[in-house]
Design a protein around this nucleic acid. Structure first.
Length: 905
RNA sequence: GCCCGGGUGGCGGAAUGGUAGACGCAGAGGACUUAAAAUCCUUUGGUAGUAAUACCGUGUGGGUUCGAGUCCCACCCUGGGCACCA
């Protein structure tokens, strides 16, 4: 047998045997619990996998392998998110058709995933761009359409001028497209949306029961952005606009607008109102404004319409706006307040209009200062705010308060805290925040002015894309402009096979140029035209986890019985960068499908784990004169070739995420070639906690090789003790002596490793195995020339346990060792070791003896020692005794099994 | 600005309020070797001391506790998310 880890000798052999035995085909045997372990749906990039990608694939494989050995039916599938911009852009670049291209890339992924020893059921694999798959994507789209959850609307959308398509809000970061980095422009195009906002509350509520990282749940909550407040009507006082020819008419029509506020308690502090420049009421209102203001407004509207989101944000602090010359009535006190138009109010949120309380809202305050508007405090600032200003101004808090009440504009950071009591608020003066909010909301409601309302930041999900490579939207437009869904028996609407599919600049889809595709007859036989937008890639990845339950079904998207069996995904593993988009969309679709009776679960992913990234040393250099660094950059990325030519002092080596563009990628092929697949697995599992970033190092890989070699060596040296029937030998023997020690080690290790893998604590699982091996080697140091049957059996138990506990982590090595002991079949098919708590128990424990909380001594005592015995041992422990000398013992704290703390004075 | 994470030896990292630094990497010394590599053994937080040992140590400053890396308060640094969201 092998005496060290020599991967070249055996790893490929075992992979071939697994494949031949179809070892990882999903089993659905009755009487076994199910386990569905899933990785995020990958787009197969042309660069193939890096060892960075393996950081999630390896651990999820480990969990699935252990679950199988523990007796579960395991579903561990892999498929490819093949539709979408990355594939299409790559295909355009390579002048290829995307379908064969993604299949080629997918095959590379499969080869690499097999190379690192992962056990997927490839018989269930699919590409989301396969008509047999996207037929059902279209079918689900229709379900949404029929429920009124998919609709078409013309609106200003985010246009990416590089990728030449629209983007969802989630795909934009700081005014730039997440993918292309292009500055996002505004364009008005009719678009398809999914009404995810209908599900906002449920998407928040159901997070509570999910076993997800809190950070991700929080990001989702923030993105949905629930806020509670009051929405009420503000009347426009047109009479005040001055004499008007048809003033009488207007008076009768009583125009008004709605505002939303989360701070109804500050209603008495309203000194002006602001409408968004796009507010529809302005068209009706402005004709009644003085001519001068009308002109100013029009100029302002033109100016703001031309601004991109980024411009609007980059403008930053400076508030802009115009007075309409019109006034509204504050319902609380009947006061007339001026109406402004300003772009700091967004049409897309709430009602597009606000009541402005400059005393207690920083934005309103800034605006009020800019435009010389009054500021009326309605909340008396509390001590902290006052003393902060007192310190700054060198005044007493009382002086600050007096000064503030007299002239709040002297204090440019507003008091926005909710701690304090109301002032200047009529009958509500003197109330605290909670009561004021309660009473004033009730007052608004009882007077029919408005009502309490919940507002969400979440917008509807923009699904259409003006690109070729996506799932066609199964809709037909008839000549009257009405829309109807394509009938089920006409699905799938096939993506036409074309030569040229490059995107257009005008916002129309490339499909619109293909007459054979567009021209179609509607249900009633008249001429119609197909919808030419395709769905964004996130549609395809919002249901693939259902398809894996029943991937080859031609009659239905999935058999409900199979979905009921496998769903939900028990453990879902992928990167935190999808915290909002994919995970939110998939949850939304699942809820819709649940409401339709098509999904057995409300939530698709019970447990979510995010892996850390793998970083590699990457060369940078300082920017030279004339070179401009991008936002957030402080060096210029250079190639490894260029780095070799530069003197050391010009180079900056930094840890950066492995990516093809940085040229710092280590491929699994290289790693496996040089160190072996199991070494790669052990290294990635051991090097850091699963969710932490990892700095790639060859030294670490060498360490993994060393560990595996020591395992081989251990099995080689203990081979002579091997008793395949160790279980029957041990069955009736009361453990004693060295056998008892060995068995205790073994059973403690089984417990820890099982627990660690379950907890995704793979680093400590590996560490536990290393400790186990060290302890076993220590145990071998005695005289083993003539072991008893029991000792040999205990050693055999240790050997078998070591191999099987290692099996999910280092499966090739486990199988090589397993067969070297004469075992048939695969370690994967052996039962996961279970531990006996009795055998795992220590018979002697180490007790810490502290004096005043400081460790002074340790003593070894029998495990079943009483508290009294522990205290006594502590009082006489020699090293502790020195610290008790001449002191009075006040108290003794005994923690059973742990420590004795003697408190002295 | 707001919301989440995270700050522990030379490095990656362990540690249900109970012996800080497990395990590994790197370093030092030794064995084997003609030599080296590989392997094995010993050792390694800091300061003082021949040593026993003592003191100091988990970003900073306070606090709670018999006892704090762990809990509370304030702050600093750092990574991520959101950001004129009324």
């Amino acid at each position: 047998m092998l005496e060290q880890y020599a991967p070249a000798e055996f790893e490929a052999k075992w992979r071939a045997r697994w494949k031949e035995a179809d070892l990882f085909r999903t089993r659905e045997e009755p009487g076994r619990p199910k386990f569905y372990g899933l990785d995020f749906f990958p787009y197969p990039s042309g660069a193939g996998l890096s060892v960075g990608h393996c950081r999630n694939y390896i651990p999820s494989d480990v969990v699935c392998r252990m679950k199988f050995m523990q007796g579960c039916n395991v579903l561990h599938p892999m498929g490819f998110d093949a539709f979408g911009l990355p594939a299409e852009n790559e295909a355009i670049k390579r002048q290829r058709h995307p379908q064969p291209m993604v299949e080629e890339y997918g095959a590379t992924y499969q080869r690499q995933l097999e190379l690192i020893g992962n056990g997927y059921d490839w018989s269930r694999s699919f590409y989301s761009s396969d008509p047999r798959y996207y037929k059902w994507t279209q079918w689900i789209f229709k379900k949404l359409f029929e429920k009124g959850l998919a609709y078409r609307k013309a609106s200003a959308v985010n246009w990416d001028p590089v990728d030449k398509t629209v983007l969802a809000n989630e795909e934009i970061i700081g005014g730039r497209a997440e993918r292309s980095g292009a500055l996002v422009e505004k364009k008005i195009i009719p678009q398809w949306y999914f009404k995810i906002t209908d599900y906002a509350q449920r998407l928040i509520d159901d997070l509570d029961d999910l076993d997800w990282p809190e950070g991700i749940k929080n990001q989702q909550r923030n993105w949905i952005g629930r806020s509670e407040g009051v929405q009420f009507r503000m009347r426009v006082d047109l009479a005040a606009a001055g004499p008007d020819e048809d003033g009488f008419e207007i008076k009768a029509s009583e125009p008004s607008f709605e505002v939303f506020t989360t701070r109804i308690d500050t209603l008495f502090g309203v000194t002006f109102c602001v409408l968004a420049p796009e507010h529809p009421l302005l068209a009706r209102l402005m004709p009644h404004a003085p001519a001068e203001q009308q002109a100013a407004f029009q100029a302002y509207q033109v100016r703001t319409a031309g601004l991109s989101d980024l411009d609007r944000q980059a403008e930053g602090r400076e508030k802009t706006g115009v007075h309409t010359g019109l006034y509204a009535i504050n319902p609380a006190n009947g006061q007339r307040v001026p109406i402004f138009v300003a772009d700091y109010v967004l049409m897309g949120y709430g009602t597009g209009a606000i009541m402005a309380v400059p005393a207690h809202d920083q934005r309103d305050f800034d605006f009020a200062v800019q435009f010389g508007l009054p500021v009326i405090p309605v909340f008396e600032p509390e001590a902290a705010w006052l003393s902060n200003w007192a310190a700054k101004r060198g005044e007493s808090p009382d002086q600050v308060l007096a000064g503030y009440l007299q002239d709040p504009k002297r204090f440019p950071e507003v008091f926005s805290s909710k701690d304090g009591i109301l002032i200047n608020s009529g009958e509500f003066t003197g109330l605290a925040y909670a009561e004021a909010t309660q009473q004033m909301s009730a007052w608004i409601e009882s007077n029919g002015i408005g009502e309490r309302k919940v507002q969400y930041r979440l917008r509807d999900w923009l699904i259409s894309r003006q690109r070729y490579w996506g799932c066609p939207i199964p809709i037909v437009h008839d000549q009257d402009g009405d829309i109807e869904a394509v009938s089920d028996d006409a699905l799938p609407v096939l993506l036409p096979d074309v030569e040229s599919y490059e995107p257009t600049d005008d916002g129309s889809s490339p499909l619109a140029r293909i007459d054979e595709f567009v021209r179609v007859t509607t249900a009633d036989g008249t001429l119609g035209s197909r919808e030419t937008d395709t769905m964004g890639g996130f549609a395809c990845s919002s249901w693939y986890f259902f398809r894996f339950c029943d991937p080859h079904n031609d009659e239905a998207a999935w058999d409900p019985e199979k979905a009921t069996y496998w769903m939900p995904v028990d453990t879902y593993v992928g990167g935190a960068e999808h915290a909002v988009m994919h995970l939110l969309y998939a949850r939304f679709w699942t809820k819709v499908l649940f409401d339709l009776g098509l999904s057995p679960v409300k939530e698709p992913f019970q447990r979510l784990q995010n892996q850390g990234q793998v970083l590699a040393m990457t060369p940078y250099r300082a920017a030279r004169e004339g070179e401009i660094l991008g936002v957030g950059e402080d060096g210029i990325l250079i190639s490894f070739e260029e780095a070799a030519t530069l003197p050391a002092e010009d180079l900056q080596w930094r840890w950066a995420r492995m990516s093809k563009s940085k040229g710092n990628v280590v491929t699994p092929d290289e790693a496996v070639e040089q160190y072996g697949a199991d070494a790669l697995r052990i290294y990635e599992l051991f090097v850091a906690p699963f969710d932490a970033d990892v700095q790639w190092s060859n030294d670490g890989m060498a360490g993994a090789v060393r560990f595996l070699s020591r395992v081989f060596k251990f099995i080689a040296t203990t081979e002579r003790f091997w008793n395949p029937n160790w279980q029957s030998t041990l069955a009736f023997a009361a453990p004693a002596g060295r056998a008892a020690t060995l068995r205790r080690l073994t059973h403690q290790t089984i417990q820890r490793v099982s627990d660690d893998v379950e907890r995704f604590a793979f680093n400590t699982a590996v560490s536990t195995l290393m400790i186990y091996l060290n302890n076993l080697n220590d145990a071998l140091k005695g005289d083993w020339s003539a072991p008893t049957d029991e000792e040999a059996a205990a050693m055999s138990e240790a050997m078998q346990s070591l191999i099987l506990l290692m099996a999910p982590l280092a499966p090739h090595s486990a199988d090589e060792l397993w067969s070297s002991l004469g075992k048939e079949g695969f370690s994967y098919e052996a039962a996961w070791p279970t531990f006996d708590p009795e055998l795992a128990k220590d018979d002697e424990i180490e007790i810490a003896i502290q004096v005043n909380g400081k460790l002074r001594d340790t003593v070894r005592l029998p495990a079943q020692v009483t508290k009294e015995e522990m205290e006594q041992a502590g009082r006489v422990a020699p090293k502790a005794l020195q610290h008790l000398e001449g002191k009075e013992i006040v108290r003794v704290i005994v923690v059973p099994g742990k420590l004795v703390n003697i408190v002295v004075r």
